Amino acid sequence: MGLFKRNPFGHILWVKKWLIRILGALTHRRFRGFNELQIEGSEIIKNLPDNNVLFISNHQTYFADVIAMFHVFNASLSNRDDSIKNIGYLWNPKLNVYYVAAKETMKSGLLPKVLAYVGSISIERTWRSQGKDVNRQVKMSDISSIGKALDDGWVITFPQGTTTPFKPIRKGTAHIIKRYKPIVIPIVIDGFRRSFDKKGLRVKKKNIFQSFEIKAPLEIDYENESIDSIVEKIEYAIEQHPSFLKVIPQDVLEENERLNKELRDM
């Protein structure tokens, strides 16, 4: 690797590599120590191509969700079977992994800016800004940035655009799928909202069951399938379709609502 070799977004790769190594070492015990991350489906990661892969997931914290994915992806590529034991996998991390995040979130302090350098595709949200509801047009430059990242590697996105559970899927994700035709891998996470604070930077509780399920690629007819059909597939795949509410115990729903209220009041 050349000393000043850069990715398509201008980030120097050796700097990104060291940031992933350091941040990975600092956060490893959050998923294997204070808590134990239960992983399922790591064999799917090993068989993916090097680029044009879109990961879709439910969302529980600003940063812990993505950090866990960096751990799981690199551990899986280093032939760990559903495990992040032994952080040697961080020595040679996959550098062409990106994640979609709100621009205002990634500019809100030094640490978010560092995390942005690791792989953020920062976009302007069309429905929310600085804690207020807005209604603005999608910026084509944001869509092009996601396409550029898919062309270079893997992209993580949270199609609900919020950490509140069972909110509607944003149709922009379906438009991206139809336009760029990536392999779409669903991920379902749980336990992060109970383990960490809102940003996912501080451990709030220990010994919380954390789960991380990687599912098989979605079957999508890119040419003929409607946007609404793709949105519905995403809802079911990341277990955020309203029908899932019927099978969640009432006490879990009440606890989630209490935690969401805490987050809104912060």
Score class of each variant (00 low, 15 high):
V114F: 09
L115V: 06
L115M: 13
V118N: 08
V118R: 02
G119W: 04
S120D: 09
I121Y: 09
R125S: 11
T126L: 07
T126R: 09
W127P: 00
W127G: 02
S129C: 08
K132C: 03
N135V: 11
N135M: 10
R136F: 00
Q137N: 14
K139Y: 06
M140A: 07
S141P: 06
S141R: 08
D142M: 05
S144Y: 01
S144T: 09
I146G: 02
I146V: 15
K148F: 05
A149T: 02
D151V: 01
D151F: 07
D152Y: 09
G153E: 11
W154D: 06
W154T: 08
I156Y: 11
I156M: 15
T157P: 00
F158V: 10
P159F: 05
Q160V: 07
G161K: 09
G161D: 11
G161F: 07
T162F: 04
T163S: 04
T164L: 10
P165I: 07
P168F: 05
P168H: 11
P168N: 13
P168W: 10
P168D: 13
P168C: 12
I169Q: 07
R170Y: 11
K171H: 04
K171P: 00
H175G: 00
I176E: 01
K178N: 12
P182V: 07
I185V: 13
I187Y: 07
V188R: 01
V188F: 06
G191S: 11
R193S: 12
F196D: 11
R202Q: 15
K204C: 13
K206D: 08
N207C: 11
N207T: 10
N207S: 14
F209R: 08
Q210E: 15
Q210N: 09
S211R: 12
S211H: 11
F212C: 08
A216R: 08
P217D: 06
